[in-house]
Amino acid sequence: MFKEICKIAKDAGNAIIQVYISNKIINISYKNDNSPVTHADHIANKIIKDRLSNIYPNIPILSEEDSNNIKYNQNWDIYWLVDPLDGTKEFLKKNGEFTVNISLIEHGIPIIGVVYAPYFNVLYYAFEKKSWKINKIGEKKQIFVNQTNIPKYIISRSHPNKKLHDFLKNKKKYTIKKLGSSLKFCYVAEGKAQIYPRFGKTHIWDTAAGHAIVTGAGGKVITYSERKNLNYFLSSKVSLINPDFLVLS
């Protein structure tokens, strides 16, 4: 299954790149929360949903690009959770830091996660509680979180936040890297960073694939206030917005 999902993610990513490198004007609209969406988002969404529906017709799909008209059953025990283009702001800024995210949720836990960064041609995936990276020349290696004496905090490039500033001000020795999209999860998973603190609004499709990759690499994703594992049980949610959370190596 995971090989098929990786292929779908790469095909969607390649379609996104065709829009990214073209000289055509990118049509931009805005969702209810004022976040941007482009026709690249819609193209990738159609590829992913069509292919998943054809291969696994009995597994329902919850995708960000249906978020203005979400139809889902809170009693789903298993479902696909998809963000066809995570990091649309980075896509529009032309810095390459955007991804395709596909995850399979079973009983509230992401058991498969695929994150593909098409601009860098790098793919991360988690399967059977292990995580892997395939680089741009096709080399595959298992990845693991890594502890250091001076931790690196990886933070959002496009979402500055006062709560994050307050969180960091009492820390002593550390470094910071700013990065877009779910690549932040992947950097923790492969040991390039140790902590990703996230305050402010994210949705479950923003985090599930990266969450799977972090846990497969030996890390964890916990809520900030209660220090419980971030979960994807639809039945327990009043909305599809995550609480503040920490990604830890």
Score class of each variant (00 low, 15 high):
residue 75 N to Q: 11
residue 77 D to F: 04
residue 77 D to Q: 11
residue 78 I to D: 02
residue 80 W to V: 03
residue 80 W to E: 01
residue 81 L to N: 08
residue 85 L to Y: 06
residue 87 G to N: 07
residue 88 T to V: 10
residue 91 F to Y: 15
residue 95 N to M: 07
residue 95 N to D: 15
residue 98 F to D: 02
residue 98 F to G: 02
residue 98 F to A: 03
residue 99 T to Y: 02
residue 100 V to S: 03
residue 100 V to E: 05
residue 101 N to Y: 04
residue 104 L to G: 12
residue 105 I to M: 03
residue 106 E to W: 01
residue 106 E to L: 15
residue 107 H to Q: 10
residue 107 H to V: 03
residue 109 I to S: 08
residue 110 P to E: 06
residue 110 P to A: 05
residue 111 I to H: 01
residue 111 I to W: 02
residue 112 I to R: 14
residue 112 I to N: 13
residue 114 V to K: 07
residue 116 Y to D: 06
residue 116 Y to L: 01
residue 117 A to R: 01
residue 117 A to Y: 11
residue 120 F to E: 10
residue 120 F to R: 13
residue 120 F to P: 01
residue 123 L to R: 09
residue 125 Y to S: 05
residue 125 Y to Q: 05
residue 126 A to N: 07
residue 127 F to H: 08
residue 129 K to Q: 12
residue 134 I to P: 06
residue 135 N to G: 14
residue 135 N to R: 14
residue 136 K to M: 07
residue 136 K to C: 12
residue 138 G to R: 08
residue 140 K to L: 03
residue 140 K to V: 07
residue 145 V to N: 10
residue 146 N to R: 11
residue 147 Q to W: 08
residue 147 Q to C: 07
residue 149 N to P: 03
residue 151 P to Y: 14
residue 151 P to T: 12
residue 151 P to I: 14
residue 152 K to R: 09
residue 152 K to H: 00
residue 153 Y to M: 13
residue 153 Y to H: 14
residue 157 R to N: 13
residue 158 S to T: 13
residue 160 P to T: 07
residue 160 P to D: 02
residue 161 N to G: 13
residue 161 N to S: 12
residue 162 K to M: 04
residue 163 K to R: 11
residue 163 K to M: 10
residue 163 K to W: 11
residue 164 L to T: 14
residue 167 F to M: 06
residue 168 L to K: 13
residue 168 L to C: 09
residue 169 K to C: 01
residue 169 K to D: 01
residue 170 N to E: 09
residue 171 K to A: 05
residue 171 K to Q: 08
residue 172 K to V: 09
residue 173 K to P: 00
residue 174 Y to N: 03
residue 175 T to W: 05
residue 177 K to G: 08
residue 178 K to N: 07
residue 179 L to S: 01
residue 179 L to D: 00
residue 181 S to D: 01
residue 181 S to L: 04
residue 183 L to Y: 04
residue 186 C to F: 06
residue 187 Y to V: 00
residue 189 A to H: 11
residue 189 A to T: 03
residue 190 E to K: 15
residue 190 E to V: 12
residue 193 A to H: 12
residue 196 Y to P: 00
residue 196 Y to W: 08
residue 198 R to P: 00
residue 199 F to M: 10
residue 200 G to Y: 15
residue 204 I to D: 00
residue 205 W to S: 14
residue 206 D to E: 13
residue 206 D to H: 06
residue 207 T to D: 14
residue 207 T to Q: 05
residue 211 H to A: 02
residue 211 H to N: 12
residue 215 T to D: 01
